[in-house]
C-alpha cells in the first residue's frame, strides 16, 4: 500500500527565517503541463522591504568575515547541495518537465559552480587589486570591496543553475543579497533557502523572495538602501524603467542577459559588484 506523501509549505526566506508573505498571498506553482505542484508565497513590496533590512543588517558581518571564512562557508553550501541532489533533481523534473538526466546535469553544474565561486573568495582581491607606483613618498594600494546590498532578478527559465549563477558571485566579495526567484520555477530556490538555513551562511546574507518579479523589482530598483541591481533575469520585464529607477540613487546596474551562456561563470560577475578602494599612506624613514 502506497504511503501518503507529506507536502511541503513553500515560504519566503528573509533574515534567516521562513515567513509567509506579510500580504498573506500565495500563487500556484504548476508543472510544465499545468498540474498543481505547490502554493508558493507571493511576496509583496513590504516583504521586499523587510528583505532589504535583513540584508543590510547582515552586511557588515558577512563583508568583514575573513575571505578564507567566506570561502569555507560558500563551499559548505556546495557540500549540502550535494547531499540533497535527489531532492533538487526531483523538483526540477517535476517543475521544468525535463528528463532526470537533464535535471541531474543542472544540479551537478550548479554545485560545481558554487565550488568554483567559493574558491574565488580569497583570491579575487589579489587578481583585481593593485599596488600602485605613484610618484611620491606614498604607499598606495587599490583593493576591491563589496558594493553592499545587491538586489537580483534571477534567470526566469532555470530552477537552480540560473539562481546559483547570479547569487554565488554576489556573495563571494561579501555582498548580501535579495534575490527574486524565477516566478514560474521557484521550488529549487525555496529548497536552496533550506540549504542556506542549515549551512553556516548567517541569516540575512541571502534573502529569497518568490512571486511576481514584475511587481517586486521596481520597489527594489528604487529602494535607496539597495546598492546594486542585477537584472540578469529581467529581460522580460520593463527593465529600462528599472534601470531608470535605479539611476535615482546611482545604483550599479547589471543589464539583462540572454543566450545559452546566461550568467556564465566569470570573474567579471564578482568584480561587477565590488567597489575599488584606493588607500594612500605617507611613507618615510624619518
Amino acid at each position: 500500500m502506497s504511503r501518503l506523501a507529506v507536502p511541503k509549505t513553500y515560504k519566503l526566506y528573509i533574515g534567516g527565517k521562513f515567513p509567509r508573505s506579510e500580504s498573506g498571498r500565495t500563487y500556484e506553482v504548476v508543472t510544465k503541463r499545468g498540474a498543481f505542484l505547490a502554493n508558493a508565497a507571493k511576496a509583496s513590496r513590504k516583504d521586499a522591504r523587510d528583505a532589504v533590512v535583513a540584508a543590510r543588517s547582515a552586511l557588515s558581518g558577512w563583508a568583514n568575515a575573513t575571505p578564507y571564512n567566506r570561502g569555507q562557508v560558500l563551499y559548505r553550501i556546495a557540500e549540502l547541495l550535494e547531499g540533497r541532489r535527489a531532492q533538487f533533481v526531483d523538483e526540477i523534473v517535476s517543475s521544468e518537465g525535463v528528463s532526470a538526466s537533464a535535471a541531474t546535469r543542472q544540479v551537478d553544474e550548479a554545485i560545481d559552480r558554487w565550488v568554483w565561486y567559493a574558491g574565488w573568495a580569497d583570491k579575487y582581491v589579489q587578481v583585481t587589486g593593485n599596488a600602485n607606483p605613484v610618484s611620491g613618498p606614498y604607499f598606495n594600494l587599490s583593493v576591491p570591496e563589496p558594493t553592499g546590498v545587491v538586489a537580483i532578478v534571477a534567470p526566469q527559465d532555470s530552477s537552480l543553475l540560473g539562481l546559483v549563477s547570479v547569487v554565488a558571485p554576489a556573495l563571494v566579495a561579501g555582498n548580501t543579497v535579495v534575490v527574486i526567484a524565477s516566478e514560474r520555477l521557484p521550488l529549487s530556490a525555496i529548497s536552496l533557502s533550506e540549504v542556506l538555513a542549515t549551512s553556516d551562511v548567517p541569516g540575512g546574507v541571502v534573502n529569497i523572495l518568490t512571486g511576481s518579479a514584475g511587481e517586486i523589482t521596481p520597489w527594489l530598483a528604487s529602494h535607496a538602501d539597495v546598492n546594486a541591481l542585477d537584472l540578469t533575469g529581467a529581460a522580460a520585464l520593463d527593465w529600462v524603467d528599472l534601470e531608470i529607477a535605479a539611476a535615482d540613487t546611482l545604483k550599479r546596474v547589471l543589464r539583462p542577459e540572454g543566450g545559452t551562456d546566461l550568467a556564465a561563470p566569470s570573474l567579471d560577475r564578482i568584480t561587477a559588484l565590488t567597489e575599488t578602494k584606493t588607500v594612500w599612506h605617507t611613507k618615510s624613514l624619518i
Binding site: T282, S284, I286
Partner: peptide, 14 residues
C-alpha cells in the same frame, strides 16, 4: 612628557 608630544609626519612636514 616628551613621548606624549604629537608625532611628526615627515612627508607632510617636508
Amino acid at each position: 612628557y616628551l613621548e606624549g608630544i604629537p608625532g611628526v609626519d615627515a612627508v607632510g612636514l617636508e
